[in-house]
Amino acid sequence: MSKKGIKVMKKILNINDRIASELRSELDKKGVFFINMMSSPGSGKTTLIEKSADKYKDELFVIEGDIQTTLDSERLSKLGIRVYQINTGPFGGDCHLEAGWIRSALDESDISNVKYLIVENIGNLVCPAEFDIGAHSNAVVLSVTEGEDKPFKYPLAFRSSRLCIITKTDLLPHLNVSIENLKKNVLKVNPQMEIIEVSSKTGSGLPGWFEYLQRNRR
């Protein structure tokens, strides 16, 4: 048998990227703005969405990504937010969502009258950043308790995002963390990043988050 060398030059995630691109176009046509929230566990993603319920529940659809449990989707359902839960646990426990998961979730969901689709990706600042899931904007959510150095430790999550939501700012007086240094570090990793500071507990900064949603309304 003769030896053969075959040049391939094909992107490894090409199928994921194709599904993501189709999703984006489809949501564009439907007038839906799609945000992919990525963060470490416990950054306050679900609480921020809860705080958006009063204003946006009729226009919002949330896809919750977790390895286990339906706890987050139960919290949102109680507030009248339409939500679809993905658990990757029974399918190998993937630590991230891929475009195919979102495709299946949307195929099984009624998103009529929806203006905003938010995916709460699985809590992890590494793996989700590798996969385009079709969002118009990736948003990295970072709580002040995580420290100033996280943009340097997880650059891909910050590079692949357009929005950085800094949460739990009410805790700053108790921490040895400078929000100015944190913001500088975010901008060193991604100079184009838009930054919003919020405290879901006190409500401080929430108008900035609502304004972001309003500005990106399709």
């Binding site: 048998m1 030896k3 053969k4 075959i6 040049k7 391939v8 030059m9 094909k10 992107k11 995630l13």
Partner: peptide, 10 residues
């Protein structure tokens, strides 16, 4: 970059 460059076999 994240791509398959080539394969070799027979």
């Amino acid at each position: 970059e994240l791509y398959v460059d080539s394969i070799e076999g027979c």
